[in-house]
Write a protein that binds this DNA or RNA. Structure first.
Lengths: 348, 348
DNA sequence: CTTGGAGTTGGAAACGTTTCCATATACGCT
DNA sequence: AGCGTATATGGAAACGTTTCCAACTCCAAG
């Protein structure tokens, strides 16, 4: 019951040396005679000694932990991101404390507070909004923060490094592709205008159309909140109102899902009746019939890079980011052409 | 630069009281006069004091952290599981240290070691194999462990509580459904025979067939390793060798994916030419054309329950599990009928 | 034989908490 | 007035490390 766990003292006693020596042997620093080293190692093995990270962290003022904050771990993009962070953290012998904000700034603030208490070495976040006050607070208490995806403004405000996908180019490539196929009335399903991502992608959409000399039609641009239901409703309303559209670009995989379901609901053949493409490549895109053309965003790399940025001399990273005005790392996207897009049925 | 972080001592000094009093105020235990309480609170606010979990954990010998170990966070089942754990942990004010074993026992052992060093309050694991030696070690150093999914034998061996989906019943329901539709030559795509899950599902498959008086045909049962490539190869070989089969049950969502792709590759219409069902419901099942019939496993609940089991008086839980011979918690599955199964084209 | 450095070693302080214990104060009784 | 009790408070120990610093041993050089 009262099995007091064994400490460095026990090992020292068993080996007949001082605790300092044990520490030196185990951490490999300092000089110890081979003879003592052997004795200590034997004692440690004998007792099945497990050093406590608590004691060490307290002394070293460094936990070897990083916080990871995403809206939702079940989202495929977030999951890939997490995998990337895990991969990098593992290779740098850091461990990862994860939590989900569920897109709720209040919850996010709480989590950040907890991570501060835990004295994590840094936080990687896909923030609800990067300019929320708790991020400034985190930086103020000396925590380094790295933002991932849709946080440009926040990174600026807080002076934290950021890793982004080149969504503007991603949207552009998809639109160019669709227009190249002959589409002129292209619907866009976008995220909430309140979020940086939602705004940016919609802007890139209209911008590209203008650049290609296609007059944008505001009735073809629909917004949804980030829930499944809202996405479905948005898609349904778009398809219903505008039976003249020949293609749809979904601004997220959730919206892409909605587009596919609604098209099926309306008995529209893809791509004969309507072409569909989406931002964000996910596993099911390949399984759809027809497989869905999508803009792949390098989620895993983004996580890896963010972690690297945070851990590889964190002060430097933060400082550099601030000095350079928070110029974020931007990773390229890639248009994955599959079978869901074709020439429009009725040109003009 | 040398911004030594402020401690309880600073607050005590600022408020003109002893550290003990500050601790009492902040932790809400013991008695303090309203006047002092106010002064302390003011000082803490003034200094923006953040208590250090390190000091507290060291003193309390309890970290408020649990370890979570899954093969792969990007797997939809694992992701849901993680979400469930996060939900429960959050409500109990615990934080979660996550890592991925990538199905590698050696890596798993390392991670467990790290978690032991971190002095987590417990570990939730979807283990590579529950009877691996490091699990016994973990228990020996006084760590409580809860297994999730395919770990029956491990739970027995280690005496840890386990949360399982009722896969046997799940497979049974799918097979009964297919046989009920008239299928007699049903292919089964199974996981590796080396894993408990792989064995159990395949066994349930043949068992059910026997119970339904359908003579099992060993040529219709194919194994794959857990990689995507291997799944595809297995599915391809099954479809190629046995053009006489009228239905396929995939033993995992990865194998289901393979079945769908191969069927499409072979120009088989679903469900006209071949019916497909799979174990494990995932988001894309609904997006397939036709949507895939699948056996839903309550991943999120499993995570939640496991966390609950671990945290709600962990000693008790472990002891009870041991006393009862490790009788695991078994959660029901549900057959979600969609459009991918129909009567066989050529009966007999 | 003395001196000095190199190589080993152990004691003790520090990291930031919580909590036990002792003390101090106030107050209501007898 | 004296006493007992309840409430408030602070000092100090403990949690498990790391590392500074001092001390000790050994041996070679003077």
């Amino acid at each position: 019951m009262t099995a007091r766990s064994i400490t460095i003292k026990d090992v020292a006693a068993a080996a007949g040396v001082g605790v300092a020596t044990v520490s030196r042997v185990l951490s490999g620093s300092g000089s110890v005679s081979p003879r003592t080293r052997e004795r200590v190692l034997a004692a440690a093995r004998e007792l099945d000694y497990r050093p406590s990270a608590l004691g060490r962290s307290l002394k070293l003022q460094r936990t070897g932990a990083i916080g990871l904050l995403v809206p939702d771990v079940t989202d495929p993009f977030c999951a890939e991101l997490v995998a990337g962070v895990l991969e990098c953290a593992g290779s740098l012998a850091e461990h990862v404390i994860i939590d989900a904000s569920r897109d709720d700034p209040a919850r996010e603030a709480e989590i950040v507070d907890r991570l501060v208490e835990q004295r994590v070495d840094g936080i990687i976040a896909l923030p609800t909004r990067g300019d929320a006050p708790h991020w400034a607070t985190a930086r103020r208490v000396g925590l380094s923060v790295a933002f991932v995806d849709h946080a440009t403004r926040g990174a600026d405000a807080v002076g934290a490094p950021a890793v982004l996908a080149d969504d503007r180019a991603g949207v552009r490539s998809a639109v160019e592709y669709l227009v190249g196929l002959g589409h002129r009335r292209i619907g866009f399903l976008g995220g909430p205008a309140a979020t940086p991502t939602g705004r940016l992608r919609a802007d890139a959409f209209t911008e590209t159309l203008r650049d290609l000399a296609v007059t944008p039609d505001s009735g073809l641009l629909v917004r949804a909140r980030s829930s499944r239901d809202s996405a479905y409703a948005a898609a349904a309303s778009l398809f219903q109102r505008r039976s003249d559209l020949t293609a749809v670009l979904a601004g997220s995989h959730l919206l892409g899902e909605a587009a596919v379901l609604v098209a099926r609901e309306f008995d529209l053949r893809v791509p004969a009746d309507v072409s569909i493409a989406m931002i964000g490549d996910v596993a099911w895109a390949e399984l759809c019939d027809p497989p869905l053309t999508a803009v792949a965003r390098p989620a895993r790399d983004m996580g890896y890079r963010a972690c690297e940025l945070l851990l590889r001399d964190p002060n430097r990273a933060g400082d550099r980011a601030r000095r350079e005005g928070g110029r974020p790392v931007v990773l390229p996207t890639e248009l994955i052409v599959r079978g869901s897009c074709g020439p429009p049925a009725r040109t003009r």
